[in-house]
């Protein structure tokens, strides 16, 4: 289990101080597939780098199976990190890259490596600088899986892959991870992908954690309301007065659409019935809609209320 407790990370000093991650607390249980969601520059990659000991947190602690991760070889041996760049491997062939990582990861599985290479048919003797971006990604994922670590972290790992290959790689990862009960942590801008792949997710914005939970729980915490009444238009204030937490409100003629947070469907229906509207519908939100509404609600600059993990 990975435990992130009140972690912050500062860059710069004094008037140039920039807080990339601010007081984030999170628990990543074993055996799950965890998605890191966030806008560009939100702090996903920074948090991942702290998880694998590249950055030392300015405050708080990060532990893997009870061990502090920074500068701890034992803890880091449980994690394999694939970052969002591949240029650093240009001079390697896949064969030499395997040897390189094999020297560092003592549990490296030659069988897994051979099996996955055969599956993807990657050239072993060709320099990786001659690989396409997708091929480099595939190669790194293979190395990551063959390293046999308990936790695998993929930062924007599916970028550059065509849809068919994307699906194949995802299946390959899931099969491998599932077989050995490993934990996958993946960051992506592609929310549909996270929705499909992960059983848990968190949303980070401007370094602050917005939410973190099981995906089903997250989705059940948000609803879209559609209300229509011939005699009047239901205002935002009315919705708030009956106790709804309105994230987004829009009106077209007599039809009102509102996104509300933090309630289950039955409770919302019960509250809305009191308004006596002609039409009242509740529609579940997709993860993508939640992502967009959450960030819109914060206007990319407003004060952010932290929702602690359930």
């Amino acid at each position: 289990m990975i435990e992130i407790k009140n972690v912050s990370l500062d860059f710069g000093k004094n008037d140039k101080l920039f807080q990339a991650v601010s007081d984030v607390s999170l628990t990543i249980p074993e055996g799950c597939v965890y998605g890191f969601l966030g806008s560009n520059g939100a702090g996903k990659s920074t948090l991942m780098r702290m998880l694998c000991g590249i950055y030392r947190p300015s405050a708080g602690s990060i532990s893997i199976d009870g061990e502090e991760v920074f500068d701890n070889a034992q803890a880091k041996s449980k994690i394999f990190f694939v970052n969002d760049e591949t240029v650093q491997y240009g001079s390697f062939t896949l064969e030499s890259l395997k040897k390189y990582y094999k020297a560092y990861y003592t549990d490296f599985s030659q069988d897994t490596f051979d099996r996955l290479c055969a599956k993807l048919d990657l050239p072993m003797k060709k320099r990786m600088s001659e690989f396409s971006k997708g091929m480099k990604r595939q190669a790194l994922v293979i190395i990551g899986l063959a390293s046999n670590t308990k936790y695998l972290m993929l930062d924007e790992a599916f970028d550059g892959l065509d849809p068919a290959m994307r699906k194949m790689i995802k299946n390959m990862i899931i099969d491998e991870i599932y077989d050995r009960q490993a934990t996958l942590i993946v960051s992506s801008h592609n929310i549909a992908e996270i929705n499909e792949l992960c059983d848990r997710a968190m949303l980070i914005h401007k370094g602050k954690l917005i939410f973190a939970n099981e995906i089903d729980e997250i989705r059940s915490g948000f609803l879209k309301l559609q209300l229509a009444d011939k005699k009047r238009v239901v205002s935002k204030q009315e919705l708030e007065q009956i106790g709804l937490n309105v994230m987004q409100y829009s009106q077209t003629g007599s039809i009102v659409q509102a996104v509300v947070r933090g309630e289950n469907e039955q409770a919302v229906n019960a509250l809305v019935e009191g308004l006596g509207c002609d039409i009242c519908e509740t529609i579940p939100l997709t993860l993508e809609e939640i992502f967009i509404y959450e960030l819109e609600a914060r206007g990319y600059g407003g004060e952010i209320d932290i929702i602690s993990e359930n």
Partner: peptide, 10 residues
């Protein structure tokens, strides 16, 4: 740095 510092070494 991402590669080397993430390696299982102090």
């Amino acid at each position: 740095g991402d590669v080397i510092m993430a390696m299982p070494m102090s």
